[in-house]
Simulated assay, not measured.
Amino acid sequence: MEDNFELVYVYAGHGKNGAVFEEIPAQFIKANQYKILKSPGLVQNLAKGDVIEITGKAEHPIVISRGGNFCIQMYFPTKIDLNKLSLDIKLKLDGTLDSANEDVCSFSIPSSNGMNKINQYFNELKDETQAEWYYANIYKNIDNPSDETLLNWWNE
């Protein structure tokens, strides 16, 4: 991670008690614009390397540019060896384990791997661990989980 960073509060959605935010390490670019330094574990539509604009309101940030990474969020029902997993992700996908909080992990995986290779890796991991996983930054309508319209930024 970059030495020059700050924690920014990024809107993740609404919960029972109102707006929910996630603290994400980012590099300041200019007023309200930041480069994300780690893929989030809760916020949708962002990954490491993306440049965003935060409006300061309880609304999703605006993505100015994509950093070329998929954000994979994964939920593990049992404890796993995070050091082994982190090394495996690095060696097989040139990715990083960006956060781990109890049973939730987020990963940054370069889109250059291609979705077939990424799907195969994470589906095999799911078979081994019974973990659930998904791409957190590929869907157009992040407020409607049943809408699977893709952004296709990785094909541009």
Results as ranks from 00 to 15, higher is better:
3 D>P: 10
3 D>V: 01
6 E>A: 07
8 V>P: 06
15 G>A: 13
20 V>P: 01
20 V>L: 14
21 F>Q: 02
23 E>M: 04
25 P>W: 03
26 A>V: 07
29 I>H: 03
30 K>T: 12
31 A>T: 15
32 N>A: 09
33 Q>I: 06
35 K>E: 04
36 I>F: 04
37 L>A: 06
39 S>C: 06
43 V>M: 03
45 N>W: 00
47 A>R: 07
49 G>D: 04
50 D>H: 02
51 V>Q: 09
53 E>H: 09
57 K>M: 12
62 I>T: 08
66 R>I: 00
66 R>N: 11
66 R>T: 02
70 F>R: 00
73 Q>L: 05
75 Y>L: 09
76 F>G: 03
80 I>C: 03
82 L>Y: 08
83 N>P: 00
87 L>A: 14
87 L>S: 14
88 D>W: 09
88 D>H: 10
90 K>M: 08
91 L>Y: 01
91 L>W: 00
98 D>G: 09
102 E>W: 04
103 D>W: 01
105 C>A: 13
105 C>Q: 02
109 I>D: 05
109 I>Y: 01
110 P>W: 10
118 I>A: 02
119 N>C: 07
120 Q>P: 00
123 N>C: 07
125 L>D: 04
125 L>Q: 14
129 T>H: 08
129 T>E: 04
133 W>R: 11
137 N>H: 05
145 P>A: 04
146 S>M: 06
148 E>F: 11
151 L>G: 03
152 N>F: 11
153 W>P: 02
153 W>F: 09
154 W>H: 14
